[in-house]
Amino acid sequence: MFFTSGLFWFIEGILACVVIVGLKVWAEDRSVSMPWWKIGLIVLWWAWAGFTAAFIGTSIGEGEPHAALMGGIVFTVPAIVAAVLLWRFLGPGKSGKRPEPRS
């Protein structure tokens, strides 16, 4: 059961670090400022999205397809709306103008 093992969570931790570094580079390249509260909002959204994925998976795994479907609707729709709002609100999607990337 790899996905419930300690090794899985170790790899998840590494992936989280990679995501954070990638996000930092991406923000720098687009001159998007990243104060702590923006990072907080992104982490919250990330946690919500992770919860949604894990909830749907768990419901399928325990033989509750209806719960997976309802979870997919109830949790995914706000996650998508929040993602769009975050994109618009946090910088890059605000003006629609992309600054030149740093080399």
Binding site: F3, E12, L15, A16, A54, I60, G61
Partner: peptide
């Protein structure tokens, strides 16, 4: 990493359920 991490959580969910 974001894509793999999300997929990992999904599969973690499936195995947690089973």
């Amino acid at each position: 990493g974001a894509a793999l991490g999300s997929a990992g959580l999904f599969f973690h969910g499936i195995q947690s359920g089973r």
